[in-house]
Design a protein around this nucleic acid. Structure first.
Lengths: 162, 162
DNA sequence: TGTTGACCTGAACATTGGTTGAGCTTTTAT
DNA sequence: ATAAAAGCTCAACCAATGTTCAGGTCAACA
C-alpha cells in the first residue's frame, strides 16, 4: 500500500509541501480543513503537520470536484471512511461508483437538453407553449407526474410555485 | 403568434404579470434589468411597464440558464440583437446554435471524464501518478502540449502553476 | 544571531444568481 | 374615500469555493 514500508511513517508534511505536491493552494487546504475534508495535527509551534494520507484524500477531492460533486458531499463521503485510515482502492471504488452514477445522470440530462435544443433551433418555437425547451418539467422531473398544465397561454405559461 | 392579433399592442405588462407569465420571480426580473438583460419603461408613478417582447427575452434567458450559460454572456447575446427588436426565430437560431456548441463541449468533456472514471474505478489508481483522472491536462487541454511531467513521485505530483 | 521564508488567525472580499426585508408609494378594488 | 394589493429602492443576506490582506509567529539557513 505504501512504496516505503516502514521508514516513511512519521515524516509529517507541512502545508506548503502538501500544496506543492497536491497542486492545491495553501488557502484551499486551510479551507478544506475548516470544512472537515482533511485533518492535521500541529507542531510544537502550532503549525499544521499532515500525514501522507492527506495526499490521497486531496486527490479524491480533486477528482470529485472535476465530476462536480459539492464539497459538502465529498466531506460526507470522506467522513464515511473508517476514521484515521487512508482511502484504499476499495474505498475509492465505492465512492467513485456512486459519483459515476451522478455523472452519468448529468450527462444524460445535458444530452436530452441538447436534443431538445436541436429540435428547437430551426423552428424558433420559443414563442410556442408546446416547446419542450421552455417546459423543463419533462426533463427535470422525468420520473415525476407527467403532463400537466398544458392549456396554452399565448406567450408565457403561468404560475410559479415560489 | 398571438391569440389577440392587433388590439394587444401597446398594452404594457406590469412586473407582476411578467413574473406570472414567465415563471420567474419579480426579484429576478429586477435583477435581470439591473444586469441589462431586459428593459422596461416607467409608468407615471414610476412603476415598471414591459413590452410583450420581454416574455420572449425571458424565455431565451431561461433556456440559456438551463444550458448553463452565465447571465453575463446571455446579456451580451441579447444585447447583440438589433436594439428594441424582439428576438425572432432567426435571432434565436443564431444564439442557440452557439450555445448548442457550448453544450456539446460540456457533454463531451463530462463523457471523457466518465470514461476515465470507468478506467479508474476498479484499479484504485488514484495513488499512481499515471492516472488520467488525476492529470486533467489531457482532458482540459486536450488540444495542448501532451505528456509532460511524468516522472512518478510516489504520491502526489509536483508543482502547480499558480 | 539575524534574517528570510513559511506559517498562523481572523476578517474581508470576490463571483454568480438571485431572495428577503424595511420603509414608502402607486394602483386597484370596493 | 379608503383599504388592500402590488410596486418602488436600497441594503443586507444566502450558498459555494475559495483568495487576499493585515498583523504577528515559527523555523531554517548562514
Amino acid at each position: 500500500m505504501d512504496p516505503v514500508p516502514s521508514i516513511d511513517i512519521g515524516k509529517a508534511l507541512t502545508v506548503g509541501e502538501v500544496a506543492r505536491r497536491s497542486g492545491v493552494a495553501v488557502s484551499a487546504l486551510h479551507f478544506y480543513e475548516r470544512k472537515g475534508l482533511i485533518k492535521s495535527h500541529r507542531s510544537a509551534g502550532n503549525q499544521r503537520r499532515y500525514h501522507r494520507d492527506v495526499l490521497r484524500r486531496v486527490a479524491v477531492i480533486k477528482v470529485a470536484q472535476r465530476i462536480g460533486i459539492p464539497l459538502a458531499e465529498v466531506a460526507g463521503a470522506l467522513a464515511s471512511l473508517p476514521s484515521g485510515r487512508s482511502p484504499t482502492a476499495r474505498d475509492w471504488s465505492r465512492l467513485s461508483a456512486r459519483w459515476r452514477q451522478d455523472l452519468e445522470e448529468r450527462i444524460h440530462h445535458l444530452s436530452q437538453l441538447r436534443d431538445q435544443l436541436d429540435d428547437c433551433i430551426g423552428c424558433g418555437c420559443l414563442s410556442l407553449t408546446a416547446c419542450r425547451l421552455r417546459n423543463p418539467g419533462d426533463t427535470l422531473a422525468e420520473t415525476g407526474t407527467g403532463a400537466r398544465r398544458w392549456e396554452g397561454d399565448g406567450e408565457g405559461n403561468g404560475e410559479r410555485q415560489g
